[in-house]
Design a protein around this nucleic acid. Sequence first.
DNA 1: GCCAACGTTGGC
DNA 2: GCCAACGTTGGC
Length: 135
Amino acid sequence: MAYWLVKSEPSAYSWDEMVKDGATHWSGVRNFQAANNMKAMKKGDECFFYHSNEGKEIVGIVNVAKEYYPDPTDKEGRFGMVDVKAAKPLPRPVTLKDIKATKSLENLALVRQSRLSVCPVTESEWRVICKMGGL
DNA sequence: GCCAACGTTGGC
DNA sequence: GCCAACGTTGGC
């Protein structure tokens, strides 16, 4: 079991929409590093759902429902996507500010590489954030 | 709205 | 294969 963090701008696709849809195609990623991370995802892996730009907080958890396959929105055919389904919300959203103030999360990929839209989370980081989020 | 960081593109 | 120019992301 591996852990990840995926970002979305609420104005583009928010957690509320994610919950309403139940499941969605995580399409539109056009960054090789992010795509490589998606390639490494296995069915059942858990991902934090992070709101960038507005909110700047982790609001929920989604599961990988389908592993990496071609993204039909990429005409070049170079990138792929995964399917994710909504799992559960965090009782208390964990903000970027909280994360930055937490010593054990200083190496979180989200903090170190703020532009990477799909990044890995270690098991210990996962546990720390879950605890902060009230799970 | 600004700007820093960084990935990508394209000329050489 | 290097590197400058450019575009985009995302925090502030």
